[in-house]
Each structure stands twice: as structure tokens, then as C-alpha cells.
């Protein structure tokens, strides 16, 4: 049987959910007999190939992230939103309670650790920032949600195993986590 091809990517996030994938530890070795990683921060392959499963960590807060999200949606048969940022908006969505310009000013000019005497807010060579951060399902269709900050490795394992058996997983309360 051909191995299931999996691509993963991260958008506006902290990469903690990918750490949670690695946190599967020795179970990851078992899984690797059934799945194969395509483009992923773990394999460092940059371009998505045709895959069975796409895993997205992080929310969408700028143009580039939206482009990457659309690409992986195109290439993946099943798309998994991994972690609170992808499912709900997460920590990055905290900025939705402030004005975009307020946020940029705070980050690039006012933070205590910033040295920016000419008070420049980057605008060239960087992706355009959106007025608010949104979960990925507000842009593309999502098939499976695994919330958590980060998700419990057991939830990731449960979801992948269900998918390998041809089912769309719905997590039980014990494996759900919004924190």
C-alpha cells in the first residue's frame, strides 16, 4: 500500500503545534511506516506536492499567509487545522481588539526592547498585514479541527489514526483543549 502523503505548514503562530507533532515521540516512528512527509518545516521541502493530508498551524494575518494557505488547500485532499490559532485565531487574534495601526506602532516603535530612532514601520518587502487576524476556516474549507495550545499529542495521534482508517475524526471532550 502506498504511503499517505502529508504536507504541513505554519502561518501566524509560534510553531508549538509542530513541536506537539514531534512530541508524538516513538509513536511518530510507527506512524512513519504509514505516512510520508512532503513539504513541511520538518522536512524543509518548500513547495507543496499533491498530498492526501495537509496540516496547517497558525492563523491568517497577512497576504503571504493567505497565499500559502490557499496553496496547501489546493494540493491537499483533507485539510487539518492544527491548534487554537488555526481553529479559532488564537493568541495572534488578541490584536483584533486593537486598531491595526496601534498594533504596528506598539510593535515597531514603542516596545521596550525596540531601537528604532527613525520610527520606521516596515512596509516594503514585507507581506501586507490584514486589519484583523482570522482562523483559517474563514478563508478555505477545513475538514478536521484539532484545537489546543498546543494540541495534546494524543489528540494528533487520535486524529491521524482515524484518518488512516478512512474516518473523519471528531475529538472527544478529553482530547479537546482550548488552552
Amino acid at each position: 500500500m502506498a504511503k499517505v502523503r502529508v504536507a504541513t505548514t505554519w502561518l501566524e503562530c509560534c510553531s508549538g503545534c509542530h513541536m506537539s507533532i514531534l512530541d508524538l515521540d516513538e509513536k511518530l516512528v510507527d506512524l512513519l511506516s504509514k505516512i510520508e512527509f512532503d513539504a513541511s518545516p520538518i522536512t524543509d521541502i518548500k513547495e507543496f506536492g499533491e498530498v492526501d493530508v495537509g496540516i496547517v498551524e497558525g492563523s491568517v494575518g497577512n497576504e503571504e499567509q493567505l497565499e500559502v494557505l490557499k496553496k496547501i488547500r489546493e494540493k491537499a485532499k483533507i485539510l487539518i487545522a492544527l491548534g487554537d490559532c488555526a481553529c479559532f485565531g488564537g493568541i495572534p487574534a488578541m490584536r483584533n481588539f486593537f486598531n491595526k495601526d496601534e498594533v504596528l506602532k506598539r510593535v515597531y516603535i514603542e516596545t521596550e526592547s525596540t531601537v528604532n530612532p527613525s520610527k520606521v514601520i516596515p512596509s516594503l518587502d514585507v507581506p501586507k498585514i490584514f486589519p484583523s487576524v482570522k482562523s483559517i476556516d474563514q478563508f478555505v474549507k477545513v475538514d478536521v479541527y484539532i484545537p489546543g495550545c498546543p494540541p495534546d499529542p494524543r489528540a494528533i495521534e487520535y486524529a491521524i489514526k482515524e484518518l488512516l482508517e478512512g474516518k473523519i475524526p471528531v475529538l472527544p471532550p478529553e482530547l479537546l483543549s482550548y488552552e
Binding site: 482562523s135 477545513v142 484539532i146 484545537p147 471528531v170 472527544p172 471532550p173 479537546l176 488552552e179
Partner: peptide, 24 residues
């Protein structure tokens, strides 16, 4: 008040886990 299902202090969150909300 947030926590996992077994340890949360928040009743709202607990009810949300129980009806299996996984996105908005």
C-alpha cells in the same frame, strides 16, 4: 480560568468541551 477538560475552572469552557466545539 481556562484549563483542560478535567481541570478547568470555567463552566462555559467545560460545556463547550462537552458539546465538542472545535472551531467557531
Amino acid at each position: 480560568k481556562s484549563g483542560r477538560y478535567e481541570e478547568t475552572d470555567c463552566e462555559l469552557q467545560k460545556r463547550a468541551y462537552e458539546v465538542q466545539i472545535e472551531h467557531f
